[in-house]
Design a binder for these strands. Structure first.
Length: 465
RNA sequence: GGCCUGAUGGCGGAGCGGUUACGCAGCGGAUUGCAAAUCCGUGUAGCCCGGUUCGACUCCGGGUCAGGCCUCCA
């Protein structure tokens, strides 16, 4: 099946053809590790995790290399380290670990590679040196700056001309810049800040060079897919292209020599408002996973197309939770159905191959669940296997179905419920409906819902409204 | 000012030039001791104005509204 993706650079939906199907490469901009990740940070992680899974399904697990960097050199990290009186690696290793644990809770696979800036300093310096050598960068007052005038395709990703940028510029222009839009590749460290040696003096890299250098060093150019949040189109990705292209010897001003496809996810709003610290509506993944199964958060993030804006609301989470209840319910009722092998149904594959239409893929999951519920016994093994295979591609439905419904119950409650169900079973056998209903009321009071079936009663912790 | 999205039924959210998206909620029915769960059925949606067409939610033009980026930012 052919994968089509909407390429930000080409501004159209095009067929994805990897440079080398034996080694498909993808890079997604990862976190700067100085704080907890919020739910907005998680959207690209989950979206590109689905793409990672899809690429593995299409090209084979061994043929996809996915890198998601960790930025562990940054002003905010420095500030935090100074404030706490510790080395930056105390801060960065702590929050990198938390980040990885949080993303794992959202069902994201580990990327193949997780390059860190501090471990790629040689590559960064080398790329800057190449840019200077190729006449695309210049040193000035301890800084090294990229000369945007030297790269004629500059602005092609964000579709803006140098003149537009100058007109819209709101930042004070440093006097050593030849052009206001020239951006920093290397800058001197302030006293007390971490520093690394370079031909231009001790200092540290600018933000944009980190990614392009790590991509070149860890994946090799050009990569197939570069992803990230929509806000990174300009200036971050625009600058990455300029660096990545111009650092190559004898380059041809061709953007595709850096990354062949660009994908950007839309933003999350919180109850229709932009997430911001000043509004106080920032929701951290670390907190959310205490209140909701990670899978609910994951499916909620995938409920809208990745390029569309997504409004994050309580109602979205409630609806998503109930939707997953329905899917897991079908699997729970099929618990005794024989395990067989089956591939991902075409409808699901087609949806995902159509620019990663997760809403459609999720809809197909519901169709499959319904088919499983209503199928003849002979068809159930295949349908169950297909539902699970489709779920695996999306990174959902892989948990134990019975456990899904009892996740909110501790051992104490479970024992209590089981005891009450035994008593209720006896009452029902004796046709003592009053007692049976009384027990059910008691269970309801414990926030437990009973479901009678032909083979006895099952139960679940009620899904909060 | 420049660049870029989006506007679908009570809510979320797709595809499609003429035929059921899907989910949540609601309603009717089956089932149930009664429920729940499940199943079956059920909604004269498509921002506005033009145009193309035998026919437009779907294509084209214009408008309105909303949001994002242009500064660290997923």
């Amino acid at each position: 099946m052919k994968l089509k993706i909407n390429d930000t650079l080409k501004r159209e939906k095009t067929e994805f053809v990897p440079k080398n199907p034996e080694r498909v490469t993808m890079y997604v901009c990862g976190p700067t590790v100085y704080n907890y990740a919020h739910i907005g940070n998680a959207r690209p992680v989950v979206v590109f995790d689905v793409l990672f899974r899809l690429l593995r399904a299409l090209y084979g697990e061994q043929h996809v290399v996915y890198a998601r960097n960790i930025t562990d050199v940054d002003d905010k990290i420095n500030q935090k380290a100074i404030a706490e009186g510790v080395d930056i690696d105390i801060i960065t290793s702590k929050f990198a670990d938390i980040y990885n644990a949080d993303m794992k809770a959202l069902g994201a696979l580990e990327p193949t590679l997780q390059p860190r800036v501090t471990q790629n300093m040689n590559a960064i310096v080398a790329q800057i040196a190449a840019l200077v050598r190729n006449g695309h960068a210049y040193a000035a007052e301890g800084h090294v700056l990229f000369d945007v005038e030297s790269y004629k395709a500059y602005g092609s990703l964000s579709n803006r001309s140098l003149d537009d940028m100058i007109a819209g510029a709101r930042v004070e222009v440093a006097p050593y810049k030849k052009n206001p839009q020239d951006f920093v590749l290397w800058k001197p460290s302030k006293p007390g800040e971490p520093r690394w040696p370079s031909p231009w003096g001790e200092g540290r890299p600018g933000w944009h060079i980190e990614c392009s250098a790590m991509i070149e060093a860890n994946l090799g150019l050009p990569i197939d897919i570069h992803g990230g949040g929509h806000d990174l189109v300009f200036p971050h990705h625009e600058n990455e292209i300029a660096q990545g292209v111009c650092a190559q010897h004898g380059h041809s001003h061709n953007e595709e020599t850096y990354a062949r496809y660009w994908m950007h996810n839309g933003f999350l709003t919180m109850d229709s408002e932009k997430m911001s610290k000043s509004i106080g509506n920032v929701q951290l993944v670390h907190e959310l996973i205490k209140h909701f199964p990670g899978e609910v958060l994951r499916v909620a993030l995938l409920s809208a197309h990745y390029r569309a804006p997504l409004d994050w609301t309580q109602d979205l989470l409630t609806q998503t939770h109930k939707r997953l209840d329905g899917l897991y319910g079908a699997l729970r009722r099929a618990a005794d159905v024989e395990q067989v092998e089956a591939g991902v149904p075409d409808a699901v594959l087609e949806a995902l191959c159509d620019d990663l239409s997760t809403p459609r893929a999720l809809a197909e999951l519901s169709v499959l669940a319904n088919a499983l519920e209503t199928a003849e016994a002979a068809d159930k093994p295949r349908l169950k296997a297909q539902l699970l295979a489709a779920g695996a591609l999306l990174g959902v439905l892989q948990g134990d179905a019975d456990a899904w419904f009892k996740a909110g119950a501790d051992d104490d409650l479970t024992a209590k419920v089981e005891a009450l169900l035994v008593a209720r079973k006896e009452a029902r056998a004796a046709k003592n409906w009053a007692e049976a209903d009384r027990i059910r009321d008691e269970l309801n009071a414990l926030n437990v819902e009973v479901m009678d079936g032909p083979t006895g009663a099952t139960w679940k912790v009620k899904t909060g409204a």
